[in-house]
């Protein structure tokens, strides 16, 4: 398989003049013609809201009327650095992101590998794994709340079959575990679809050849499937990471009470975007909330670029061999 996100570094490393002379203007025009839908959309629709959103973070905007809006310089950014909740929520977010992304990858890849094989009823199994992905998050959260409820919840009832008198108030004692399991459950379908699609690009001949050479299923997975799937794994990791960093509805919906601006998740599930959301909608600090979110943007960008960079070591490329 040819390098994917990796092409990024490869081109950057190449002296600009060399490829320009070799490829020529025509080639560049073709490139811009292909990406023109996105480029035009970005300039026409994306850029102005982005700029407004950025400028908002330098104001005292509180969501009410604009007559009182003033520039406050970098005050909001300074406040973010000194706010103990910023650090707390970022720590909890990283714990959540780390567990969700890794566990999610294992489950999604596992489901895809199991369902890539021609097993009987494959379409049905695929659909069952996909289903939670389309269950609306509000309904999913309700189900997980009653599922883990210490009074009539199914989870404790099932554990009670093995361990009588088991009584755990999951949402209070293990809020992040519940949140991670709920999120992984809900997102499995999406990742599985990507991995299933990716697995189709792996030639069956390669696996067969390896099996003839005496390789067991683990070796085939380790030396054939995973390396060839690496670009898709990278895609899924990046997308999961970005999504998990921004998670907000799931922790709010698992919190006590009905969903509203003041819904407060347990301290352990007080994630970064929840913090920003509260500053915006509860404390009426829209400008400050915007600053918090732009800081999150920078952290996400940094983590993503680090991930893409690290992929050099584990994403294998045909050309390099």
């Amino acid at each position: 398989m040819v390098g994917t996100a990796h092409a990024l570094e490869r081109t950057a490393a190449r002296p600009r003049s060399t490829w320009w002379r070799r490829r020529g203007t025509r080639r560049a025009l073709t490139f811009y013609a292909f990406i023109s839908p996105w480029l035009i959309g970005f300039v026409a629709l994306g850029a102005i809201p982005l700029l407004l959103a950025l400028l908002m973070s330098f104001t005292n905007y509180d969501g009410l009327n604009l007559d009182y809006v003033r520039f406050v310089g970098a005050d909001n950014y300074a406040r973010a650095v000194n706010d103990p909740d910023t650090l707390h929520s970022m720590q909890r977010t990283l714990v959540f992101v780390g567990s969700t992304v890794t566990l999610g990858l294992v489950v999604q890849l596992g489901a895809a590998l199991l369902l890539d094989a021609p097993v009987p009823g494959r379409g049905l199994f695929r659909t069952l794994f996909y289903l939670p992905y389309v269950v609306p998050v509000v309904a999913g959260a309700w189900i997980w709340k009653i599922f883990t409820d210490p009074n009539g919840g199914l989870l404790n009832a099932l554990i009670g079959l093995v361990k009588p008198e088991f009584a755990m108030n999951w949402i209070v004692e293990q809020p992040t575990t519940v949140l991670v399991l709920f999120t992984v459950w809900a997102l499995t379908g999406g990742g599985m679809v990507v991995f299933l699609a990716g697995l189709q690009g792996i030639p069956a001949e390669l696996k067969e050849a390896a099996q003839i050479d005496g390789a067991g299923p683990v070796s085939v997975l380790r030396f054939i499937t995973l390396p060839l799937l690496a670009p898709v794994i990278l895609f899924q990791l990046v997308v999961s990471l970005i999504g998990a960093m921004q998670i907000i509805q799931q922790p709010l919906l698992l919190a006590p009470g009905l969903l509203g601006p003041g819904t407060l998740p347990p301290r352990d599930n007080y994630l970064y975007v929840v913090h920003a959301y509260h500053e915006i909608f509860v404390n009426q600090r829209f400008g400050y909330g915007a600053a918090l979110l732009w800081i999150l943007f920078l952290i996400t960008l940094g983590l993503t670029l680090a991930l893409v960079r690290s992929s050099r070591r584990w994403v294998h490329y045909e050309e390099a061999q």
């Binding site: 973070s57 909330g289 943007f297």
Partner: peptide, 20 residues
């Protein structure tokens, strides 16, 4: 930039997008 567009949290974009 394409990748970065995925990283901007919606909450901060809602009001400007509506205004546009």
């Amino acid at each position: 930039v394409v990748l970065a567009m995925m990283m901007v949290p919606n909450v901060v974009l809602f009001v400007p997008q509506f205004v546009v």
